[in-house]
Design a binder for these strands. Structure first.
Lengths: 119, 119
DNA sequence: CGCATTGTTCGACATCCATAGAACAATAAA
DNA sequence: TTTATTGTTCTATGGATGTCGAACAATGCG
């Protein structure tokens, strides 16, 4: 269907990483993605924005090197590039994910992902 | 001279923190600030932008809760709120600082690299 | 084949943001 | 007091960004 381009480890920049994570919608998506193991269909994670907007956000995350996207059938599967990002910037993504998990301001911000929303 | 308002720990948000750190000029400034201990005059850290621009960046850093600014005479002294930020989001700022220290794209003291190098 | 599902792309739009110069304020130094 | 230093604020500007709807593409299902 569609071929996605992913930056390799060398092309991942710290500011790019931080910028990609600085959006509430994106950070929440990444957080939900980290909670699951392995790949995850985009649609399986509830988001408060239109699908075209989410497509844009996923593009940002992908180009920042945070997620890997591949298509299978009609749906695209996203997975966190945790190991690669950690190898490049040790502790950063992990600390952000941990902080996000315990942050209340992300829950209502964008109204994302109550436990009941997760299928 | 001027009174600065600083957010308390409760008002520091993760996305605000990440956004403030996602700018190369700001991240470099914070990194230099971390290298020094205690307060530091703004002018003591070389920056590649005009002073009005730097004033804007320092405002962003201050409002994000990352730096504390106070004036003494004609100059304003900035200090990193490392302990407070770490108390709120453990590991995040520290990991970012460590990553920034070892990142080549940030090295030459603020010349905004990386954007043009990505093409 | 026709239709539903899933996501991308395009155009549009409003807003934010980094940048800089000019004018201003406050203090220090001569 | 006059000048220099330091930084803020105002205004402008060009570019990036988040958002959406509509149209499109690809696959799966009946």
């Amino acid at each position: 269907m569609k071929q996605y381009q992913h930056p390799n480890a060398d092309q991942i920049t710290l500011t790019g990483l931080l910028h990609a994570l600085s959006d509430p919608v994106r950070l929440n998506y990444v957080q939900c993605l980290a909670a699951k193991i392995g790949e995850c269909p985009c649609g399986a994670i509830p988001t408060p924005v239109a699908k075209s907007t989410m497509s844009h956000h996923l593009r940002v995350l992908r180009e920042a090197g945070i997620v890997r996207i591949r298509t299978e059938g009609t749906q695209s599967l996203t997975s966190l590039r945790l190991a690669e990002v950690e190898a490049k910037f040790p502790g950063v993504l992990q600390a952000v994910l941990k902080a996000a998990k315990e942050d209340e301001t992300l829950q209502d911000n964008g109204r994302v992902a109550s436990e009941s929303d997760l299928a």
